[in-house]
């Protein structure tokens, strides 16, 4: 391979989905935390709630659009995140080699991974399941809290709360590793491409099995 060879990792529709997802989710997380801890005075709290609602609508539209326009990607993503092998357990045993690399500047042997490594798979599952729960519960809490039985409404409230905590915690890790792996970050936010060597190192199985050469 020549030095300049690249792989298109994130096609445009995936990137657009991700832009909107990132923008709306960050907004939702910040306003959500403000609302939960009641950090502001009355009119500002109301504004925070309104922003929360608008961002929630944007997130929902984004998810729906992606679901219908790119159902193949949804299926592919679901399959990849829910497919586990022994390698994933081994990956977790060394935590992908990241702590060693970041903290001790040591390189350890990491089992070969597909497009998503075991940690990303776990994150992917949380995003799929948690995100769906958050969207559904959010809509019920906004539009139907009077009509659903209040026991159910209170349970839906708890689901919304716990799912958001899990996702916010994962978001920190995701942000950190995303920036740490600058090539991936650029791929997602700029042009979708990552260098071939980089991918071959981090996702050897993907590079081996799932790619097609152009031309």
């Amino acid at each position: 391979m020549t030095e300049s060879s690249f792989i298109l990792k994130h096609p445009l529709r995936v990137r657009v989905f991700h832009y909107l997802l990132a923008a709306s989710f960050l907004t939702l997380a910040v306003t959500g935390i403000m609302l939960y801890f009641k950090l502001l005075a009355e009119p500002a709290m109301n504004t925070a709630m309104q922003v929360h609602v608008v961002a929630g609508v944007v997130l929902t539209m984004d998810a729906l659009a992606f679901f219908f326009l790119a159902f193949d990607r949804v299926v592919l993503f679901t399959k990849r995140t829910f497919t586990f092998s022994g390698n994933d357990i081994k990956w977790f045993a060394v935590l992908g080699g990241y702590p060693q690399k970041i903290l001790l500047h040591k390189k350890v042997d990491v089992p070969p991974m597909g497009k998503y490594n075991a940690g990303q798979k776990l994150f992917g599952i949380c995003v799929l399941v948690g995100g769906t729960l958050l969207i559904l519960s959010g809509w019920v809490l906004w539009a139907l809290p009077h009509a659903v039985p209040h026991g159910a409404a209170s349970m839906i409230g708890s689901i919304h709360l716990y799912a958001s905590w899990v996702l916010i915690l994962f978001l920190f890790v995701h942000l950190f590793l995303g920036i740490y792996m600058w090539d991936d970050f650029k791929a997602m936010f700029v042009d979708g491409r990552i260098p071939y060597e980089d991918a071959a190192e981090k996702a050897p199985l993907w590079v081996k099995n799932d790619l097609r050469r152009l031309g």
Partner: peptide
């Protein structure tokens, strides 16, 4: 009653603002 609500009429969403 946890499984109930006093909402008697038709179920219509109401978008608080």
């Amino acid at each position: 009653c946890d499984t109930g609500s006093s909402w008697i009429g038709r179920v219509l969403p109401s978008f608080a603002w």
